[in-house]
Design a protein around this nucleic acid. Sequence first.
DNA 1: ATATTCTTCGGACAGGACGACAAAGAAAGT
DNA 2: ACTTTCTTTGTCGTCCTGTCCGAAGAATAT
Lengths: 220, 220
Amino acid sequence: MFFRHTTDARNLLARPKRQDARREALLQAAGVAIQRRGLHATRVRDIADQAGVAAGTVTYYFRDLDELFRLVFAQAVDRFCTQREREAAAHEDPRDQLAAVLRHGLPTGPDDQLCCLLYEFSPHARHRDSDAQLRRELYERQLHLYRDVLTRGHASGRFDLRRPAEEIAANLVALEDAYGYHVIARTFMPRQQAEEHLFGYAALATADPSLAPENHYGPG
Amino acid sequence: MFFRHTTDARNLLARPKRQDARREALLQAAGVAIQRRGLHATRVRDIADQAGVAAGTVTYYFRDLDELFRLVFAQAVDRFCTQREREAAAHEDPRDQLAAVLRHGLPTGPDDQLCCLLYEFSPHARHRDSDAQLRRELYERQLHLYRDVLTRGHASGRFDLRRPAEEIAANLVALEDAYGYHVIARTFMPRQQAEEHLFGYAALATADPSLAPENHYGPG
DNA sequence: ATATTCTTCGGACAGGACGACAAAGAAAGT
DNA sequence: ACTTTCTTTGTCGTCCTGTCCGAAGAATAT
């Protein structure tokens, strides 16, 4: 009698809910579809085809496309940030941390799915509050990452910061975003060059010549 | 009898063609509509409403939306670049040039139409060759602008470049693009702060402390 | 086996956007 | 006034998409 809905599971619950796996698969399929066709051209059917299910299945799990897209974006943001935070935590020396974070901030190439997604959603931040919030979270987490590395390196005497840590961190994030876009888009800027320019700035701002691209510590 | 269509204009050509003005007005209206609703959500009807004409008029002047959008993008790229090249040409001292170009590279605010358009089209570069070409032109012209100012300033002894001019120019363009996006999107980064970070890098790379934000030559 | 609940499917439906078309309207020459 | 050409408009048909919905299928407890 108490908590009938939750405890009285004698003869109820014939088939257990296992929606999580399907939802995850659909999110994954949506990511592929968006990367291929572009966010603006992705339809319910594309996602269903990619996942190998009927269109009705997609709407069974997600109220509408907007909700699905929002979840894809949120997941992409979180994955990207978490992945990088792990990369940073894997090193001890701030220089190694900085180099690792810089490298993993750039897309591996024009087909980097995670990065493609992030860029596909960029213009939406102007128009939807939920997307703006996510984009802000992405920025804040990246900024935090760099600022931590810089201040820690500064405190331990490894870096001699030539500008305020806040400014350097913001500039690193900005450079990374912009070059990331060029690698993704077909602007014919190779990843190698983007990386060199990034490391060039890092070397200049931290007064650590070993980070400079011509010194083979970074882009090697 | 010869070339009847083109030369026999005696009593032909009753009403002269003046499509240019209308086309221009429609492009302008399309820009406003895209800025408001976002490129992905802009329909023929929105453009027609904005221009105060019927929807059929839009399709009379442009075969389809794609063609219209491509022209809007092309015009935005050209206007943006031309405007900045003029700004640079208005000054003599490379430091003034650099400061002017840096300032006019950032959107005036979240409603800067030209900049909004450029960012709305960004993700399309991955999917359409014509857009990729335009995006590339935008980048090249910006890069050229900065590189010229830097090398000229270096040659005249005004700047002491701490990194290759090519790298500094590329980084300035990249910073500008990224911060421009933050000003446009609702990421809550004010223009002032973006400008200060930009000038901070310029001061560092050119070894010209007067450009630094704290020295009131730039953003102040 | 059977009942119950969760999951999937595909068709029917409505809504909307685009493109075509033909007629009306405007501007200039004769 | 009349003709010719350019421009605009409104409507219609077509196509496509997202959503709804009922039925079929699958998984588990009894």
